[in-house]
């Protein structure tokens, strides 16, 4: 996990990236990205988080090659049920005789899908609501923020439960429910950032160029809100995974036999005293991935949240 290993000292391109006098748009952009990366890489724990998530991504992509058994088809219920961890079944087997390791490997796909879908639904919605409210002010601001307040005034999991109950159980509806309940904090952050910059001279300067409000929000305000939003979304990922697992645990998320980690814990609950591995393995997986997202978020805060 040595950052130096990633950036071998090659003075040529390193100087090219960090030059004070970039000669093209691409060089300026790459140089900025590289400076962010060096700040990020100086945080060892953030690199650990990133490594875990890269590993998760690889596991999800190559699940078919990594998993020894099918995640859904069980073994012989007389001989393969609830076996403790062994060489044949690294994490043991569950009550249907299915290999828990294979289920966890395939479950990584579900986890990544949930995280990815929630991020691409909730973050843009929150960003747009917040920046528009903050920039427009007046009744637009009041209306949008009261809507945000209504969503914020419910406990997240309870609201998600209500949505899933209304929409019907299933992983897609769980994703939708989590997305619907997780955008309001993003809207608040984006609005606060927008309020801080809307009266600055550089926004007045683009107003004086005759830029339309849409252009000002999208091209000048949004880029400045992005970094704090990315950090917040990354830090929230752990919560999103846990909410998804919670819905799965309550039987309102992924439906059997799909190998969703939260649903797996719910299955193992009945045997947790005698066959601890059934619930422990998915629990550990949730814990590690949530931790990785938190570490990554901390690292991103150092890398992105610099002013000037």
């Amino acid at each position: 996990m040595m950052p130096e290993a990633y950036n071998p000292p090659a003075p040529g391109w390193r100087e090219w990236l960090l030059t004070e006098r970039p000669a093209s748009r691409r060089q300026a952009r790459l140089g900025r990205a590289y400076a962010s990366w060096t700040r990020f890489a100086s945080n060892r724990l953030a690199l650990v988080g990133l490594a875990i998530l890269v590993l998760l991504l690889l596991v999800a992509v190559f699940a078919g090659l990594i998993a020894p058994d099918s995640p859904v088809v069980g073994g012989d219920l007389r001989t393969a049920r609830l076996l403790p961890p062994s060489a044949a079944h690294v994490f043991g087997t569950d009550d249907q005789g299915r290999d828990i390791f294979s289920r966890i490997v395939f479950g990584s796909r579900l986890t990544l899908m949930i995280v990815f879908l929630v991020a691409i639904i909730a973050a843009p919605v929150g960003l747009l609501m917040g920046t528009v409210a903050g920039y427009a002010g007046g009744w637009v601001d009041a209306t949008l923020m009261r809507i945000t307040d209504i969503f914020l005034s419910f406990p997240k999991l309870v609201l998600a439960l209500a949505f899933v109950a209304a929409l019907g159980p299933g992983i897609e509806n769980a994703v939708l429910a989590i997305a619907i309940t997780s955008w309001p904090p993003y809207a608040r952050i984006a609005r606060a950032e927008t309020l801080a910059i809307r009266n600055s001279d550089f926004i007045a300067a683009v107003q004086l160029m005759g830029a339309s409000p849409v252009r000002i929000v999208l091209r000048h305000v949004v880029p400045l809100c992005l970094s704090s939003l990315i950090i917040r979304v990354t830090l929230d990922m752990a919560g999103i995974i846990l909410t998804a697992a919670g819905l799965g645990f309550l039987g309102l998320g992924a439906q059997p036999p799909s190998p969703e980690w939260g649903a797996m814990i719910a299955d193992g609950r009945r045997f947790v005293l005698d066959q601890w591995w059934v619930a422990a393995a998915p629990g550990a997986a949730i814990f590690i991935v949530s931790l990785a997202f938190n570490l990554l978020g901390d690292g991103l805060r150092d890398a992105l949240d610099t002013r000037g």
Partner: peptide, 10 residues
């Protein structure tokens, strides 16, 4: 304060 902090001169 009058130049956008995330934009190049260009």
């Amino acid at each position: 304060g009058s130049l956008h902090p995330r934009q190049t001169v260009d």
